[in-house]
Design a binder for these strands. Structure first.
Length: 805
RNA sequence: GCGGACAUGGCGGAAUUGGCAGACGCGCUAGAUUUAGGAUCUAGUGGUGACCCCGUGCAGGUUCAAGUCCUGUUGUCCGCACCA
């Protein structure tokens, strides 16, 4: 036994990180003849807090896959960058009176050193930064293209306004009625906003989910968020001659419509103000509704409120009956037509409203008791009280009435989506300036492409204003400009883009990050896209993921990118919780800092524990003892050196174990089952210890298998023990399926389903031979002696069950 | 309310198409070694003292065989939230 050096992670991790950097080991090659593999993680937002141990979980997972793929001969792109515009930095900058650019630089430096100390195989030469003018030039360019194609428009709209951040929020940023970022109260505020027509892509965003390999829960969430529904639009005439359009998914219940409800903001009220006899009352209700924050609205959702529109009645087109019109805030202007036909017999909300205001309820689908509750079942039940629909089931009735409506020109088939257009303006400083100017004569005019990027100006104060204007509005020198079209006086847009802008296309930039002619070259996009595997958090499923798919589809339509979808495969990791099983946060005092773990145990141990901690897709609490166990394993691996014996082959008694492990590890790394891959390597090491021997061939292949998880220690052991070259340049080992099974295997013999004996039989026996082998066994014969054997069921390789009486 | 996921030892978790429940790790117990151990090694570790038996949230069912399939039920987590 030779003298062994101590395992010193501090020393060897630094050593190998320096070597990898110096040699450019992980720089993606420009050689496009090799098969490519593009692995992507969500680029981090460089906050002032630094990393906690939750961050490295997804990064390590894809690092493992990336490292394995390189050894399998792929040209791997595994890039990293910074999503650096955004509110927290700006807020911190305001509070501490430091320019957000300086704050950003500082935070990035911190994140970078933390990520580097974990030994990820990122291609640092392709680092991007959304706040770099050379990057946001192209964010602005894409926006101009959207504007050019009519997909960006400015609209006076009631938006979600965070009273703390003093900024408009997208629907997606309002969580439970409060601001997703700061938890501040959100109220409705009418503002002139830039909007992006993501709704125009709703159908494709939905149907193209068939083209990609996303985990089910991601697909389901996107489907729900897009919220497609099929129904009909129906025209209701009114006694005032005004036509009220409604959208319904239940046209079959038209005969049961006993009143109508329109949203308080519905334009009919203003248009017919001369004919409405209680206008004051309606306006009062509308104002009350507008003042309510979204939070209050949902809070008060239990009790329905409303006011009848007096002086006008609607006419049910199927039976010409006059029915009253009400306004109520349970009908939203932003969905469908802002008006509904109320069918209290078969819609729960309408039923509650009708009960409260004593409106008639008519049963049109038999099967329930509409006096007790709305009958909403659409599977069972037959149409009644519905003239020519009587006797049909719901499905048939829907079809028939829709045809009838179309024939009579009073209705049409209609598909609706819950998805709304994307509020794209922020009244903030730290974001991409919107490259448009407003000219009295020409309206909104894009600044010429060659003038991009439109730089964010230096500014005295970047505090948001109480009026809701961007800080940029306080800079007349910057705002006042000339119209690119007519040369007249014009003013710049002072709103900036939301944080989601830069992250909607960053994966494209990685393919060609230094290109100053295009956002990325055609050849590079052709070669690298789509992203083969994208892992990220579930919290981005309805925001970033949908937004970036939308931009990508748009870029596909205008011929910039070669694929209709950006990401071929999407997976998601579970959160790492504090040791107390609560979400890790500063305020709970349960944050575990990766720097400290690296200092105490080493990066390899941390990486390994991140992967071994549990089911990758589930939330799991951190455990200090758990990480200690991983360090213990690496210590054991280090000490394997003392067992090394000569041998270019696997030893006969471990041959099966080797092939099995290679198979298990190779497959598990691909299937997010890092925990079981590591478990199988631990078992293998236990076998080496049991023998106190490991051949050079066994050790060699074991090191390769372990390398993606623990890259530093394995490189060091590779070198120390005189293997050729660098470990990361080796070929991934392969397994021989026929060698993954022992010659003799143990199977169970059950009697009436209970295991009573275990026998050794040669592997590969068929069903009958297996049964025969069991029936020959002495102990088994003993056990069934004198009993009546009814049935013998053999399962090759598993067990034999003997049914006796 | 709607949609989705999950429920297995003291803990994190394993378990192809239904086929030996509890792999691997932690923790714990005992022993060895050590001046000492939050080090290392060996053995044990679902419950009950042992064979038996009982055991995958709960109650049924299908099957030779159920953690896995079916029906019902309870609980936890996540997403959406008056979407007509």
């Amino acid at each position: 036994m030779k003298q062994m050096k101590e395992y010193n992670p501090k020393e060897i991790e630094k050593k190998w990180q320096d070597i990898w950097e110096k040699e450019g080991t992980f720089i993606a090659s420009e050689d496009k003849s090799k098969p490519k593999f593009y692995a992507l993680i969500e680029f981090p937002y460089p906050s002032g807090e630094g990393l906690h141990v939750g961050h490295p979980r997804p990064y390590t997972a894809l690092d493992v896959v990336a490292r394995k793929r390189r050894m399998q001969g792929y040209n791997v792109l595994f890039p990293i960058g910074w999503d650096a515009f955004g509110l927290p930095t700006e807020n911190y900058a305001i509070k501490n009176k430091i320019h957000p650019r300086i704050v950003t630089e500082k935070n990035i430096a911190r994140f970078k050193s933390q990520l580097k100390s974990l030994g990820f195989s990122f291609d640092w030469s392709r680092e991007v930064n959304t706040t770099d003018p050379a990057y946001y030039k192209w964010t602005q360019w894409i926006f101009l293209k959207l504007f050019e194609k009519g997909l960006a428009y400015k609209k006076e709209a009631a938006i979600n306004w965070c009273t703390d951040c003093k900024v408009g929020l997208a629907n997606e940023e309002v969580v439970n009625g409060v601001c997703e970022r700061c938890g501040g109260e959100v109220v409705r505020k009418v503002k002139n906003q830039w909007m992006l027509k993501i709704t125009e892509y709703a159908e494709r965003l939905l149907s193209d989910l068939d083209l990609v390999d996303y985990i089910e829960r991601v697909k389901v969430q996107q489907v729900n968020w897009i919220g497609r529904s099929e129904g009909a639009e129906v025209d209701f005439n009114t006694t005032a001659g005004y036509t009220l359009k409604v959208y319904t998914t239940r046209p079959d219940t038209l005969f049961g419509a006993t009143y109508m409800v329109i949203s308080p903001e519905h334009p009919m009220i203003d248009e017919l103000k001369d004919k409405i006899t209680n206008l004051d009352e309606l306006i009062e209700y509308r104002e009350k509704a507008a003042r309510k924050s979204d939070f209050e609205r949902t809070e008060l959702a239990k009790e329905k409120t409303g006011v009848q529109v007096k002086g006008i009645m609607a006419i049910n087109p199927v039976n010409k009956k006059e029915i009253p019109i009400w306004i109520s805030d349970y009908v939203l202007m932003s969905y469908g037509t802002g008006a509904i036909m109320a069918v209290p017999g078969h819609d729960t909300r309408d039923w509650e409203f009708a009960k409260k205001f004593n409106l008639p309820i008519i049963e049109v689908v038999a099967g329930g008791d509409v006096e007790k509750e709305a009958f909403t079942d659409i599977e069972n039940g037959t149409m009644v009280n519905s003239d020519f629909l009587n006797g049909l089931n719901v499905k048939e009735a829907k079809e028939k009435i829709t045809e009838w409506l179309e024939q009579n020109g009073i209705g049409r088939r209609k598909v609706n989506y819950k998805l709304r257009d994307w509020v794209f303006s922020r009244q903030r400083y730290w974001g991409e300036p919107i490259p448009l100017v407003y000219c009295e004569k020409c309206g909104w005019v894009p600044i010429p492409e060659e003038e991009l990027p439109l730089l964010l100006p230096e500014v005295e104060s970047y505090e948001p204003t109480d009026t809701g204007e961007s800080p940029l509005a306080n800079m007349p020198d910057w705002v006042n400009t000339t119209c690119p079209k007519c040369g007249g006086k014009a003013q710049r847009e002072t709103d900036t883009m939301p944080q989601w802008a830069g992250s909607s296309w960053y994966f494209l930039r990685y393919t060609d990050p230094h290109n100053d002619k295009e956002l990325a070259s055609k050849e590079n996009l052709e070669y690298w896209m789509p992203v083969d595997w994208y892992n990220g958090g579930m919290e981005h499923t309805t925001l970033h993921l949908l937004y970036s798919r939308f931009w990508h589809k748009f870029l596909y339509d205008i011929g910039v990118v070669p694929t209709p979808e950006p990401y071929q495969k999407r997976t998601s990791h579970g959160m790492i919780l504090g040791e107390n099983n609560e979400k890790m946060s500063k305020s709970r005092g349960n944050v575990v800092n990766p720097d400290e773990m690296i200092d105490e145990f080493g990066a390899d141990t941390l990486r390994m524990y991140e992967m071994f901690i549990g089911d990758f897709e589930k939330a799991v609490p951190w455990s200090y003892n758990g990480i200690k166990g991983c360090r213990r394993f690496l210590d054991r691996v280090w000490r394997l050196q003392s067992f090394i014996v000569e041998g270019d082959e696997y030893s006969s008694d471990l041959e099966v174990a080797m092939h099995k492990t290679i198979k298990k590890v190779s497959e598990d790394y691909e299937n997010l089952k890092f925990n079981t891959a590591i478990a199988s390597m631990m078992s293998l090491v236990n076998s080496f210890y049991a023998k106190e021997k490991v051949t050079r061939a066994e050790f060699r292949d074991f090191l390769i298998l372990l390398n993606p998880v623990a890259p530093h220690i394995t490189e060091e052991l590779w070198e120390l023990n005189g293997y050729e070259g660098m470990l990361n340049q080796q070929k991934w080992p392969t397994w021989d399926e026929s060698k993954t099974v022992e010659d003799q295997i143990e199977i169970a013999v059950q009697i009436n389903g209970k295991v009573r004996e275990r026998i050794m039989i040669p592997s590969g026996l068929g069903k009958e031979e297996t049964e025969e082998a069991a029936m020959k066994d002495e102990k088994v014969l003993e056990l069934i002696k004198g009993k009546n054997v009814i049935k013998v069921i053999g399962v090759p390789g598993k067990l034999v069950n003997i049914v006796v009486k």
